[in-house]
């Protein structure tokens, strides 16, 4: 019987081998790049770009779920520590997105250019270039307006909560969890990641949880998004801010 068990197991498995992508994915992860997992979902593209920025801001490394976005760096030395003029923006990133001096009670205080690249599901680079985000402050709280003129065509994510001048505005809400490198997500957390309601960032010394909202739209081939973290404003307030920018 022992031999029969051994032969049955060998027979069941003998024709199977790991695909080449396993080796490639391992190397990419070990090199600190992002790997392609079966859960690839292009619809999460836009939100992941913004969330990756949150994770990077928080000082942790985005995990495998941000596989389709890579930010090669937001160099703080390039930071514009005042409300930039449109000429400054054009000179820095080569395009001029719509932005305003204020968003509700929030006042524009600084801007941050960054280098970004976008990849498709086969890890081919779709586009790369400079982007810029704008930080607005109010009573010690910050919201950020991200802009991109990348030719990479990505879908918006979330629910359409308003339409302004034929521009659909999408809203979504999710949880960020910053965890140590050896953290193992629970089955429930893995399910939430699949659903796009949870993003896990590995590299933190201790577990921290924050709530984020995300609103996005595309206007004249420039993609905009506003991200809030631990400062929930609600979809109506964010949609009003989007409308202010679209009409500016």
């Amino acid at each position: 019987m022992d031999n029969k068990i051994k032969e049955a197991l060998n027979c069941a498995a003998e024709e199977y081998s790991p695909s080449d992508k396993v080796y490639d994915n391992i190397l990419m992860e070990l090199k600190g790049e992002k790997s392609m997992k079966k859960s690839f979902n292009i619809k999460r593209f836009a939100v992941c770009a913004a969330v990756a920025a949150v994770l990077l801001t928080a000082g942790v490394t985005a995990a495998g779920h941000f596989v389709y976005y890579a930010e090669s760096g937001a160099d703080l030395r390039d930071r514009i520590d005042h409300a930039p003029t449109k000429e400054e923006v054009a000179e820095t990133v080569g395009y001029v997105p719509k932005y305003t001096e204020t968003l509700g009670d929030y006042k524009l205080v600084s801007a941050q250019p960054s280098d970004s690249s976008y990849y498709d599901e086969n890890n081919n680079e779709l586009a790369s270039g400079k982007e810029i985000s704008f930080d607005y402050d109010y009573e010690g709280k910050t919201i950020s307006l991200f802009t991109s003129d990348s030719p990479a065509q990505f879908e918006q994510t979330g629910d359409v909560v308003a339409t302004v001048e034929d521009v659909d505005i999408y809203y979504s809400k999710f949880t960020n969890k910053f965890v140590p490198p050896d953290y193992k997500p629970t089955a429930e957390e893995e399910k939430q990641v699949e659903e796009g309601t949870l993003n896990i960032g590995y590299g933190s010394d201790e577990i921290r949880v924050s709530e984020s909202e995300y609103i996005s739209w595309t206007d004249e081939e420039i993609t905009y998004s506003i991200l809030t973290t631990d400062n929930v404003l609600g979809e109506d307030v964010l949609a009003d801010m989007a409308e202010t920018i679209i009409n500016s």
Binding site: P18, V22, I26
Partner: peptide, 13 residues
């Protein structure tokens, strides 16, 4: 199985 192997190598290395 592929995901298992991938995660195992990364974790171990």
């Amino acid at each position: 199985a592929e995901d298992t192997v991938q995660e195992t190598f990364v974790t171990c290395c």
